[in-house]
């Protein structure tokens, strides 16, 4: 049975606990649910972050997230995957992103959750703008995020080699 994939891109705040409960109760065959929650940091590059503005590409964003989730669901035989990502104005400490993966066993749920996050960081069209006491600044992409995403490409090659 194909995995149930759902994607939410919204400006409204969300409650990670409520999302986890709803997701877990809707994944009856699962023996494992892994969830990652990303929060807006209050300090970045040595400066206090007062607020964050998150721009995205409506129409492309949802499709990119669905593609990433579907690829992970197929690779790790997920029962369900859900990605929630906010846009617009956010405050430090607020949840900005959540990835939930349900599988029969924990290994697949953990791996899929991490892969979805790593690919999201380099492939989903979001751009952060931080407001600091020194003014507003666009956040630059990090090479470490690119490397994190690429290691899943390498892992895919190993899977192929070892059948």
């Amino acid at each position: 049975m194909p995995a149930l994939i759902s994607v939410l891109v919204q400006s409204a705040a969300f409650d990670p606990g409520a999302e986890l409960n709803a997701f877990a109760s809707g994944s009856a065959q699962a023996g494992a649910v892994a969830m990652f929650t990303g929060l807006v940091r209050d300090l970045n590059l040595g400066q206090q972050v007062q607020a964050m503005q998150l721009e995205h590409y409506p129409g492309m964003t949802e499709q990119a997230l669905a593609d990433i989730a579907a690829a992970a669901a197929a690779r790790w035989s997920l029962i369900a995957a859900r990605v929630i990502h906010r846009h617009g104005e956010l405050l430090p400490g607020e949840p900005i992103v959540a990835v939930l993966c349900a599988a029969a066993h924990r290994g697949d749920a953990f791996a899929a959750c991490e892969c979805i996050m790593d690919r999201l960081k380099t492939e989903a069209p979001f751009w952060k703008r931080e407001h600091t006491p020194a003014g507003a600044r666009w956040v630059d992409a990090r090479d470490s995020d690119e490397r994190a995403a690429r290691r899943w490409d390498a892992a895919a090659g190993q899977d192929d080699e070892h059948g």
């Binding site: 590409y57 960081k121 989903a124 630059d140």
Partner: peptide, 10 residues
């Protein structure tokens, strides 16, 4: 066709 900086979501 869209042009943009490297993405920084998540």
């Amino acid at each position: 066709v869209a042009f943009f900086p490297p993405v920084t979501g998540g």
